[in-house]
Structures are given as C-alpha cells and as structure tokens.
Design a protein around this nucleic acid. Structure first.
Length: 777
DNA sequence: CATTCGAGCTTTTTT
DNA sequence: AGCTCGAATG
C-alpha cells in the first residue's frame, strides 16, 4: 500500500473500454437486476444494502470495471476504501481479474488507514509532522503513555496505561481531540486529568514525529477541515468514491468520508447492518441508518438474493437475526434447495468438542471433501489451541488465520526496532527498545541519563547518546558499550545505499549480537524465534526498500501466510467475515463465551445484539453444511466452569435445525430431550459462583432481562442424575475430608463447589484448588 | 547491574 | 494456567 504507483493510463483500460462497445461487457454477465442497478447507477449517492452472500464484492468490483469502461474515471480518480487489509487485497485482486492491470494502478484503493497515511504524508507539515513520521502500533503507544503517566507522577497501578490507551482510542474513534473530550469522560481517568493527559500524549507524539492509528484518520480530517484548498484538491480528484463494509465505519471515518464525498457526491456505500461486528472498536451502525439524511436523494438498493447458502442454513440464520431490534430489515432468499439442516451437538468439554469435530472432518475428508472448504470459526482466539492440538495428533493439516500476529512477536518487534533506528535515527521509541538488548551493561540508570540529556538539549535519543559518550557522566565501561553501539549504527547507516536491504537486515541482526542472544538461549521457543527472524528477512525481499517495508509493517500488521495446500482453516468469527466455505464448524456456543460475557457487561443490549450478528455472520459463511457445538464444561482462567448452552441455540428455529447426540460413548451424553437447555439438567449451574456473579452484575446494570433467573427458565423435565452428580453436590470430597496436593501438601477440605475445592492446607494455608489435583489421604 | 522468584492479572474481537 | 511486572538478592 505504500508503493507509489505510476499513474499512466494502463493498457487494460483501453481493452476494457473497447470490449464494452460490443455486447454486454463481461462484468455484467450473470448479474441479477438489483445487482445491475447497483453497478450501473453511477451518479449521485447510493447505498447498497447487501445481505450475506448476495454478491456484494462482485458488485463493487464490477462497479469499478464499469466506471473505467465507461471512461467516467481514470484508475487514480476512484477512491475505494475498505476496512481491513484483507478486504482491500481481495478487492484489488478481483478488480484485476475484471479489468486487468488497470486495477493495479489504483493508488487509492486501500484501507481507511492506508489511504489516510498517504494523504497525511503529503501534507504532514499541516499537522505538525514531518513527511517521514513513524506510525506507532499499540505496543509503542502503550510505552509512550506509560512515560507520560510517569512524568505526571500518576500511579500507574491505580490508573493503568492500558485504560488511558483505550480512552484515547475511543475518543479518537469518535473524532474528538483533547479540547472536545466530554467533561464526564475526562473526569473518569486519574481524577479528571484524562483530557490533559491526552493533550500531553499528543504533544509527545508531535515531538517524536509520530502518529498512532487514530491520528492517521484524525489528523487527515483536521487538515481537510482547516485547509479548504487541500480538501478541494481531493474532492476534485476523487470523482467516484466506493466504500466497502460501510456498517463498520466509526465516527471519525464517517466524518472523513462525508467531507470528501461532499465534493462530487458520487459516493457508493455497500454494507449490511446485520453484519456490523466492530462496535467495540467504535463502529456505528447508525452511520448506515443516517445515510439518507446525509445525502438527500440517495438511492437505496437492496440485494436480497443469496447465492451462497442452502435453504435451511439461510432460514436458521434469518430467524436468529430476527431477534435483533433496530435493523433495516432484509429478507434473504434463495432458489437453491433446502439442503442439510444445521446440526447442534453438545459435548462434555472443549476437548471432546475438538475430538468430535476432528472425527467429523475425517469422515468428510474420506468422502472427498476438500479441507480447504472447511472452516472452524471460534469466538475467541484461545479456543483455537484445543483444535490445533487435536489436529496435530490426528495429522490433519490446518491453518490458523489471524492468530498471534507475526509483527507483534517480541523478536520481530526487536528486529524491527533495529531497522527503524537505521532508517529513522530520530525514532526514540525504537532506540529505547534496543538500547540494552542484547544486554550490554546499559541499564535503567544509563537510559535515564540519555533521556535527561535529550530532553535538556531537545534532541533525539541517539544524538544525545552520542553527545554523552563525549562526557564523563557515564561509567567508562558503559561509555565504551554505548560507543560501540553508536559506531555500529553509523556503520549500518552507511551501508543502506549499497547493500540490498534484506542483506543489511541480516548484517544488523548478526553484528548487533541479537541473533546470538537467541542462539544462546536454551529455551524451547528460541528455535522458533530464530525461524521467525529468518522469515522476517525473507519477507523483506518483496519490498523495494527499507522504508517501504517499514511502512507496510506498520499498516499491515499481519504477514502473508504462505501455508498453501489443502488445509482446514481455523479462525475467529471476526476474521471470517467476507469468506465462505462449504462446511462450517461453530464450536463454543455457550453463555458467557458466545454471547461473550464482556460484551453484555460493557454494552448491554447493544452488545448482545452485536454478538447475535456475529452468530449470523458465522452461520452465513457456510454454503452447505453448518455444525454447531457447545460444551458443558470449559476451563476459564485455569478453573473449570460449568456452562450453559448459548441462548442463540434457543433462538434457532426448530424446523430448520437438527439436534444431535454427542458421539456414542461420550462422557457427556445426549442433552437434547428437551431441546436446548433450561431443563432441570442445567439447574445446578445457576448456583455456580460465576453464574451468580454474572447475574448480579447484570442486575446492577439494569439488564436483568438479559440474564434469565432460574425461576423463569426452569421448566419441564428432570432427566437422570448424572449432571447433578457432577456438580455442586457431587464432589468426591466432602467438607472435612483429608486430602493431599502435590504442591501444597496435606490439608483439610473446607468447602466443595463443583470440581473446585477450598482447602485449608497444613502448611500453605487456605487455597482454592481443582479437585483433580488432590488425592484422598 | 543482572538474575531470580513471587504476586497479580489476564483472555474478544483489529487498524 | 500462563504471562508480565516488580521486588529482592547476588
């Protein structure tokens, strides 16, 4: 996204234009009337409400093709914004398939952040930055905030930097600068210092010549607002604006978009209010609802014909999402057959869940099902581990999408810090990071000296360090070490022009001793880290220069995974948006996990509705087969918790869902007699501390109706005693029993709660332990 | 100044 | 349960 692409009209443009003269152009083939309308209505504001699987991306790319073919715009006159890098990449690729190389010459196709960066670099001075400003990621941001808090003598135990970071983030998401922070919110942090700290942070950013993610948008917006001539430039240039996933835009992005679109008013937004799943990041569904009033005379086109899923899946998904209030409302339909019903299966715990899914996948594979066409979509990334472990033992090839991000690993960030110091000698945060890494005898005290010097002289750290080596302030040994480091840096800097940058990176990592540091480390993961570093150097080769590489890294936080081949995909529901698979497995449909407890606690009903949309996204990823699972027990923060089946299961229409028993011989058998839950079986679960706590909190928040009380839910059927035997009454250890724990030694049981025991140990005192960790004695 | 050990906190999702 | 951060110790 960083590469400045040449703007010469490419050959592809002419080819497409020529083709358009004959019969209907290729990009209009097989489009239904609504889709055609959305593609061909070029003038004025348009909102396309595109349900899941209705060909949204096809329409967007075809629209680009149409604009080019009609000669309405040159590739560089179209602004096409997406929300994620993945979406940007996909649009780029699919546009390239339609119009050939012309799509590659679309310099203004990218994420909000990438495009903003491009604009901001051109006009950086207007925002008090130099064009070479660095982009801070979350990690840098946090360290900077810690410094600010420290400088202000604020106890970062009581007021953690993380909390301030999330405040600032949400302010930036809403387009607020320090002067406009609502008083109530500013008061919430550090006794009212919130806004002042925000201001200080911004000042620090400016002196560091740096911007965080939020700034990329906010500063660009500010430039537009304060410099009409600059704004005009871009309003004129962008003859046509296209926005993907419009439901995900936050207030800042919305303002950014609106100010640009007010020029020519040729703006086409595509979105689906039912798939808005980024509310926690400040996305406002309201933006989509407000479209008509912002752009009077806007045309609204609904795409409701679903080309992806079979009937039962679509019915199930539609019934589920119908539980949400405040939707624009669409009715998806398909001409295809009803197909298989989504199946719901209960498991005893997450291990059994993974085992069952593993077996089902093997069966599908035996029938010739491609693994590429199978996905496991989880709510939270910690769920992935269980599947990975299971698939490794089965030898089932899989790929994790999302996962721990490559560029966020410590060793990668360290290596990048070295590169940043070379490319950008004023990058103080990077310099601080590697100042004593590997260890070179320069500790906190030394860093403090450099810092003080730098502040006094108002120069970057690296320069201050240089100056310090000329004085007597440091101990001789340290002075020597620092001299060595600085000499290294100037030598590496002198190599920048001469050597290929990947080679330079290798030299730096080798000569700095950083690689050696890991080689000497005898821990299990050291080898993996060295591999990652190799991978980093290798991936650099794809970029024209060090600067371009660093820019890419800061904007695209994930590395292209090159694990090609036929594999099962494991990813979060968020990562799955926009994808489709033949078969989709949806594990972990339990209260507290999905819907996630936090989302309800933080956002109440709005949070619950967002979770439901997430479920809707999950269901609608499948073309033919959906398998939903829930586990009766799950380990959360190391403690086993009994869980309730998700309320979403009850919201699925009985006619379109098949309820299955878990695999034969399973520890946790059929749950299904009374359909989903709320039978006596789960009664005891309401007594677990977790559940009680959740309910109490919900009630305090005035959301009692989201957390049904047992009296209300307890209806019908009492089946067998198995579960009860497993839960509160069922501990193998009664109060007063003597037990032995491998770590704490002998003790006496003070209380038993499910499989958790409170034990008074003879030596260690009172502890809460898991039943499975103790033996009777 | 570096290393080691324990306490406490964490786990939603992403640019 | 696993990790990060801070205090205590060499």
């Amino acid at each position: 996204m960083a590469s400045a692409v040449s703007a010469h009209p490419p050959d592809g443009l002419k080819r497409v234009a020529a083709r358009a003269k004959g019969h209907a152009p290729r990009y209009l083939e097989a489009m239904n009337p609504e889709q055609r309308q959305a593609i061909e209505a070029l003038d004025g504001p348009i909102l396309v409400l595109a349900g899941a699987g209705t060909g949204k991306t096809r329409v967007l790319t075809a629209r680009i093709a149409h604009l080019l073919a009609q000669g309405r715009a040159r590739p560089y006159e179209i602004l096409a914004v997406t929300f994620t890098n993945k979406a940007a990449r996909e649009m780029q690729q699919r546009a390239a398939m339609l119009v050939g190389p012309a799509a590659e010459a679309m310099p203004w196709l990218g994420t909000f952040h990438a495009i903003s960066t491009k604009i901001l670099r051109r006009h950086a001075e207007l925002a008090g930055l130099k064009p070479s400003f660095t982009i801070l990621d979350t990690d840098d941001q946090l360290r900077l905030l810690k410094q600010v808090l420290q400088a202000e003598n604020i106890d970062d135990k009581r007021w953690p930097a993380r909390a301030l970071a999330s405040y600032i983030d949400s302010w930036k998401n809403r387009g607020l600068d320090a002067a406009h922070v609502p008083a109530a919110e500013a008061a919430a942090f550090a006794n009212g210092k919130g806004a002042a700290l925000y201001k200080l942070y911004q000042e620090r950013l400016k002196t560091l010549n740096a911007a965080d993610f939020g700034d990329l948008l906010l500063e660009t917006l500010r430039i537009f607002r304060e410099n009409p001539s600059v704004l005009m430039l871009y309003q004129e240039r962008f003859r046509y604006i296209l926005v993907d996933e419009y439901q995900d835009t936050n207030a800042a992005q919305y303002l950014w978009l609106r100010i640009l679109a007010q020029g020519r008013r040729n703006v086409c937004c595509v979105g689906d209010d039912d798939q808005s799943i980024y509310g926690w990041r400040g996305a406002e569904v309201g933006n989509i609802l407000r479209f008509e009033s912002d752009f009077p005379g806007a045309k609204i086109i609904r795409l409701e014909r679903n080309y992806r899923s079979t009937g039962h899946i679509l019915k199930a998904a539609s019934a589920l999402i119908a539980h949400n209030e405040g939707r624009l409302g669409k009715t998806l339909f398909t001409d295809g057959g009803m197909g298989e019903k989504p199946a719901v299966t209960g498991a005893w715990d997450c291990e059994e869940e993974a085992r069952t899914i593993g077996e089902e996948i093997e069966q599908l594979q035996a029938k010739g099902h491609a693994l590429d066409e199978i996905a496991i979509l989880v709510r939270a990334s910690f769920q992935m581990r269980e599947f990975e472990e299971r698939f490794i033992t089965l030898g089932l090839p899989y790929r994790v999408i999302g996962g721990p991000r490559f560029y966020e690993r410590a060793e990668i960030r360290d290596a990048l810090a070295y590169l940043r110091c070379v490319a950008q000698p004023a990058d103080d945060l990077a310099f601080e990071r590697i100042f004593n890494l590997p260890k070179r005898g320069l500790g906190d005290a030394a860093l403090q000296l450099v810092n003080n010097y730098a502040r006094r002289a108002r120069i970057p750290l690296m320069q201050a360090a240089q100056a310090l080596t000329e004085t007597e302030e440091l101990k001789p040994k340290q002075r020597q070490a620092l001299r060595g480091l600085l000499a290294d840096f100037s030598r590496w800097a002198s190599l920048t022009g001469n050597k290929p940058h990947s080679e330079l990176a290798e030299i730096i990592l080798e000569e700095s001793g950083y690689i050696d540091m890991w080689r000497k480390e005898r821990t299990a993961d050291a080898a993996g880290r060295l591999e990652n570093l190799k991978e980093l150097v290798r991936s650099m080769e794809e970029f024209p220069g060090l600067g371009a590489f660093l820019e890419h890294v800061s904007l695209v936080m994930d590395a292209a995974s090159n694990d090609a081949g036929d594999r099962v995909s494991i990813m979060t529901l968020h990562a799955a948006k926009g994808l489709e698979f033949e078969t989709v497995f949806l594990p972990g449909w339990e209260e507290g996990l999905f819907p996630h407890q936090r989302s309800i606690e933080d956002q109440g009903r709005a949070g619950l509705e967002e979770e439901r949309r997430l479920a809707y996204v999950g269901l609608t990823r499948a073309r033919r087969r959906v398998r939903i699972y829930f586990a009766a027990n799950r380990r959360i923060h190391g403690l086993w918790q009994t869980t309730l089946p998700s309320r979403f299961l009850e919201e699925l229409p009985a006619d379109h869902v098949e309820v299955r028993d878990a695999a034969a011989g399973s520890a946790y058998g059929n749950y299904a007699q009374s359909r989903f839950a709320n039978s006596g079986r789960y009664e005891s679960r309401y007594e677990t501390p977790g559940w009680q706590r959740a309910r109490r909190r919900a009630e305090e928040a005035g959301e009692a109706d989201l957390w049904p009380r047992p009296e209300r839910s307890r209806r019908t059927v009492q089946i067998e005693g198995e579960l009860i035997a497993r839960s509160s009454a069922g501990s193998a250890f009664a109060k007063g029993a003597r037990v032995f724990h491998t770590k704490f030694g002998p003790g006496t049981v003070a209380a038993a709660d499910g499989n958790k025991l409170t034990v008074d140990f003879d030596k260690a005192g009172r502890k809460m332990v898991l039943e499975s960790f103790v033996e009777a004695c």
